[in-house]
Design a protein around this nucleic acid. Structure first.
Length: 596
RNA sequence: GCCAAUGUGGCUCAGGGGUAGAGCAAUUCACUCGUAAUGAAUAGGUCGUGGGUUCGAUUCCCACCAUUGGCUCCA
């Protein structure tokens, strides 16, 4: 029996479902070639190579065939073959991808198969015993996926699905997915007017509407003050620079595809011509602050921070709402430190990031990833030597272990100049992105000739910590919208008070009051009776504001509002002026960002 | 960039070779007085953009742009 609370059992179960999927596809379209079909979080997939794209109708057909296979209750049989026989067996069936997989297995590996009736797959298992155990499943989507995850390889068709031991659990899962999608910032954020996009402005270039811009402004002011209180110095550096700057940093060689470089291709490479590029990172600009004059060991650590707008020419298929964009503004910082300060300053960066994420409420859903280089990667991806990388990574590993950070390791996830601690966050679809990153860089300071005079009078090269505190504002806003279903915590919400006109006849007056309050710096909205956001969200929105201001005939006649406070209950009718003062006082007391 | 789907008034969608519909929203009038969607009337779209086929295209074909889910990549 399968214990669905047990992760291994769950994988076994889903893995078998993926075999049933493959069996069904082979029965329907025998010419289809099989690639791989593992279990994943919440489900499974299988990659197929087939000329015709799978349509929605095809998925239905496949599901029906899978049901038959489940009903046949076929036993899964395990057996092993010597390498040559295994290879021949797969070759005879034209399964070129399986042959490649076999060739990839190390010499000492056992090569095993699972057979279920008319279908046999190269597989190390494990599986459930009989297909009949798979009581409930659903194919959820078709997508393209490169063979071996390499964009140079052929694109295969991947069918995603999920399965459960009974129908109720499956339904519960699908319902939960539906609920999660309702919090999708890309939908909710547009409906609630946090942001919008315009096709003739371009992909990945969102417009922050007044509500979204207000939240970002609140967060940004809070962060800038917070960073200053932790010894950071604010800088303002150019958004673009000549090619020569990026050549020194290595961006020209390692990151050029990701940059917006001006001028046509021929001029970009013609060194006799001037060539500018928008900045994809702040690093080389902020280093100039350090380089401005000779530095002593007493100047370090030099903690530089900037609310920095960056431009990255992401591939066209990458953009997603506010999570993946081409222009974004990040709470960027570079700490230039002496080697003996590295650990302490790293600790400070991590503490700052955790404090920021905790304050906005995202920390509890974060995971930590120690992103390392891949020694096997062709050397053009990373700067520096093997020794330098090993030193940097060993240093970070020691710090992480000392701090007791619970992390996973990501190979080949490092920046080109050093290892990273990435703080990861999942969106409502379960897709993970980096929210905050802290990086140890032992390379770039030398490239730029950054030196300080140490206590012994010798010139030394500093280390650099690249870090963000709250990540980039667009992405963070996206996750906040999803986390709070659009109703952000009071102190950062775009709305502090809501005006509730009793009937349509009071609308005009309500808008007048709103404008008066806004001029005083209060964040006020009129309850829009036309809002079609669903009752729950709307109620939550009302519940979140600190004040409601009810307007009826009497109030209109007297030029007053009836004020009600979340904290103190009904406060009665008063002039708009008095209400405004009352609110302003509370904003001071209750709505300011938390102090560290 | 790659695979696939989508693009019709503010929103959700229907339609389909002869120059467009519905519901909700908007505006006006009436009604309503403490939280949703009462009635009547009005207004609103060169059917994503540009080409092509055609007597004629929003409907067929091509290209491009944008959106969505993935892959690759990445904060």
């Amino acid at each position: 029996m399968v214990d669905f609370n047990n992760a291994e059992d769950r994988l076994r179960f889903r893995h078998t479902t993926s075999h049933i999927l493959a069996q069904a596809v082979k029965r329907l379209w025998p010419e289809t070639k099989l690639a791989i079909g593992p279990a994943i979080d919440d489900g499974f997939y299988y990659d197929f190579d087939r000329e015709e794209p799978f349509t929605a109708e095809d998925l239905k057909k496949i599901e029906d065939e899978m049901k038959k296979i489940v009903k046949e209750n076929i036993t899964l049989e395990y057996y092993e073959l010597p390498r040559e026989e295994a290879r021949k067996f797969m070759e005879e069936q034209g399964e070129i991808y399986k042959v490649a997989l076999i060739d990839d297995l190390p010499d000492e590996a056992t090569i095993s198969f699972y057979k279920q009736g008319d279908f046999t797959d190269l597989c190390k298992g494990p599986h459930v015993e009989k297909t009949g155990e798979i009581k409930a499943f659903k194919l959820t989507s078709v997508a393209g996926a490169y063979w071996r995850g390499d964009s140079k390889n052929k694109m295969l068709q991947r069918i995603y699905g999920t399965s459960y031991p009974d129908k109720a659990m499956l339904k519960e899962h699908l319902d939960r997915m539906e609920e999660a999608k309702k919090r999708d910032h890309n939908k909710l954020g547009r409906e609630l007017e946090y942001f919008t996009t315009v096709d003739y402005i371009g992909q990945g270039l969102p417009i922050l509407l007044p509500k979204g811009a207000k939240v970002v402004q609140i967060l940004q002011r809070w962060i800038e003050d917070l960073e200053a209180s932790r010894g950071c110095m604010l800088t303002k550096t150019p958004l673009m620079a000549k090619r020569e700057l990026y050549k020194i940093s290595g961006h020209w060689d390692h990151y050029r595809d990701g940059m917006f470089v001006m001028g046509d291709k021929a001029d970009q490479d013609d060194l006799t011509k001037e060539c500018f590029a928008l900045r994809p990172m702040t690093c080389p600009f902020q280093y100039q602050v350090f380089l401005n004059r000779q530095r002593s060991y007493r100047d370090l650590p030099m903690r530089l921070t900037e609310t920095s707008t960056l431009f990255r020419n992401e591939d066209s298929g990458e953009m997603h709402g506010l999570i993946r964009v081409r222009q974004f503004t990040i709470s960027e910082g570079h700490y230039i430190v002496r080697p003996d300060q590295l650990e302490e300053e790293f600790r400070e960066c991590l503490d700052l990031a955790k404090y920021c994420l905790d304050t906005v409420g995202l920390l509890e859903d974060c995971t930590f990833r120690f992103s390392q280089w891949d020694p096997a990667n062709p050397k053009n991806k990373y700067e520096g030597t093997k020794e330098q990388w090993e030193t940097a990574q060993a240093t970070m590993e020691k710090i992480l272990n000392d701090l007791g950070v619970d992390y996973t390791v990501g190979i080949d996830e490092a920046a080109f100049y050093g290892p990273k601690l990435d703080i990861q966050y999942k969106n409502v679809y379960g897709k993970e992105d980096t929210l905050v990153t802290i990086q140890i860089d032992m390379l770039l300071a030398a490239s730029y000739g950054m030196e300080y005079i140490d206590a012994d009078g010798q010139k030394k090269t500093p280390y650099i910590l690249h870090r963000t505190s709250l990540g980039c504002y667009e992405r963070t806003l996206a996750y906040l919208i999803e986390k709070y279903a659009g109703c952000l915590p009071l102190w950062m919400a775009y709305e502090q008070a809501r005006i509730l006109p009793i009937s349509d006849a009071h609308m005009d007056y309500a808008f007048k009051v709103r404008d008066e309050l806004r001029k005083k710096g209060l964040r006020v909205e009129v309850d829009d009776r036309s809002e079609k956001l669903g009752k729950k969200i709307r109620e939550a929105a009302v519940n979140k504001v600190i004040y409601t201001m009810v307007i009826g005939d009497q109030e209109m006649e007297n030029g007053t509002v009836t004020l009600e406070s979340r904290f103190e209950g009904k406060l009665g009718a008063m002039s708009v002026e008095d209400a405004a003062n009352r609110l302003l006082k509370d904003v001071e007391d209750k709505v300011k960002p938390p102090k560290s």
